[in-house]
């Protein structure tokens, strides 16, 4: 059973939490500009990496807040927890990923 460091409440047992899937899925600004296949991709298709994975968790039996967890799917180590509106922690990313993330964020700001 994991021990998760809720950004609001501190260390608590996994039994107080629920994982609600992959984090950083950006909702399309205009859903109607997408065809059915693209929309379905947004709705359902998720990555399933071996290793580092970014997830949304809710402290469902605690403060009820959602937050993000960076978790290793092999060792089950939790590398970082951070709030929903925060970017992926830079220390976990390769240079390429950091550059990519910066692009995504700036496009979000423009949108």
């Amino acid at each position: 059973m994991y021990e998760i460091d809720c950004p609001w409440c501190g260390l608590r047992d996994e039994s107080e939490f629920h994982c609600t899937g992959e984090a950083h899925i950006i909702r399309p600004e205009d859903p109607y500009a997408l065809d059915d296949a693209q929309w379905t991709d947004y709705l359902h298709h998720r990555s399933n990496p071996k290793g580092l994975h970014f997830e949304q968790w809710q402290h469902s039996s605690g403060c009820r807040k959602w937050f993000n967890v960076a978790r290793d799917t092999v060792t089950y180590e939790i590398k970082a927890v951070y709030k929903v509106d925060e970017p992926k922690p830079a220390f976990l990313l390769t240079d390429d990923q950091s550059a990519n993330q910066a692009t995504v964020e700036s496009s979000e700001v423009k949108a």
Binding site: T20, S60, W66
Partner: peptide, 13 residues
Amino acid sequence: LNHLELWLQTEWP
């Protein structure tokens, strides 16, 4: 309640 809170917290803060 969870559904509503998820949208409020993650998409419509």
